[in-house]
Amino acid sequence: MSAATAPVAGPAPLPDPAAPAPLPAALKKAARRRRAVPYLLLLAGVAWLLVFFVAPMVYQASTSVQTGSLDEGFKVTWHFSTYWDAFDAYWPQFVKSLVYSGIATVLCLGIGYPLAYTIAFRAGRWRNLVLILVIAPFFTSFLIRTLAWETILADESPLVHFLNTIHLLDVTSALGITEGDRVMATPLAVVCGLTYNFLPFMILPLYTSLERVDGRLHEAAGDLYATPFTTFRKVTFPLSMPGVVAGTLLTFIPASGDYINAELLGSTNQKMIGSVIQSQFLRVLDYPTAAALSFILMAVILAIVMVYVRRAGTEELV
C-alpha cells in the first residue's frame, strides 16, 4: 500500500481551468446567501436615511420652486426667482455666516492644535484625564454653555471690566469687531461662542491623527538637522493633515448653519443665515424661501466640502 506512506502530488487529470470539477450545490447556495448578507444588513439603516434624509431633501427642492400661501396651499410653479429674491434679500447674512464660521474654524485650528499636540505627545499619564475634560463639555447642554458665555461677556462682568480698563476694547472697536465698551451683541462675542462650541470637534480628529504619528519621527528629524520648528512644519503637520481636514469640516459645517450663538450672543446685526431659515420656516411660514435658502447654503457647503474631499478622500472621513 504505497498510498499510506508515500503521498504523491501531481496535476489533476484535467488541469484545464475552463473545465473544473463541479462544486456541490450546497456550496453554491451558501455563496448566494452570503452575497445577500450585506444588503440585508444595510436595509434598515439605508431605508431610514432614504426616507428621512434624502426624500426630505428632494421634497425641499420641489418646495423651493413652489408658490402660494399657507391658506391656499403651495403648488409647484417652477418659480426659480425665489432663489434670486431670497439671496438678494439675505446675502449679508450668508456672508456673515461664512465669515464668522470661517474665522471660528481658523481660530479652532490655531488654539486646538497645541492642545491636541499636548495630549498626543506631552501629556503622559494625564492624557486620559485631559481627553475626558475635552469631551466632558459635550455632556453639558450646548445651550447652557452658550448661556454661560452670556454671563462671562455680560457688560457688568469682571472680564469686560478688565478689558475696558486696559483699553483693549477701544482697539477692537476701532477694528469694528466690538462696539463701544461692550463685547456682548458684537461679532467678537459670536465668533468667540462659535469657536468655543465647536472646539472639541476640531481637537478630537486632530488628536486622533497626531496620536498615530510615531514619536520617534521627531527624534529622527532632529537627528537629521531639523530644528523643532522645522520638524513640526516638515514632519508632524503634514502627517496630521487628515485630522486637520476632518476637524476643519466638522467645525466649519455645523458652525455655518448654527444660529444659537448668533441669537444668544449677538444682536440683529450679527444674524446668521440659520436664523433667517428658522424664522422663515417657524415664524413667517414662507416655506419656499426657507427651502431656497437651505439649498443655497447646502450648495455652498457642498462645494467647499467637495474641494476638501477631493484632497483627502472620503474614506478617511467616513
Binding site: F53, P56, Q60, T63, I253, G274, F295, M298, I301, V318
Partner: peptide, 21 residues
C-alpha cells in the same frame, strides 16, 4: 456617500427639510 452626507449637512438644512416633509 449617503452615510457621509448627513454629517456634511448643516443641521438647519436637515431640520427644515424633514420638517417640511
Amino acid at each position: 456617500m449617503l452615510i457621509f452626507l448627513p454629517m456634511a449637512m448643516p443641521e438647519v438644512v436637515m431640520g427644515a427639510s424633514l420638517g417640511t416633509l
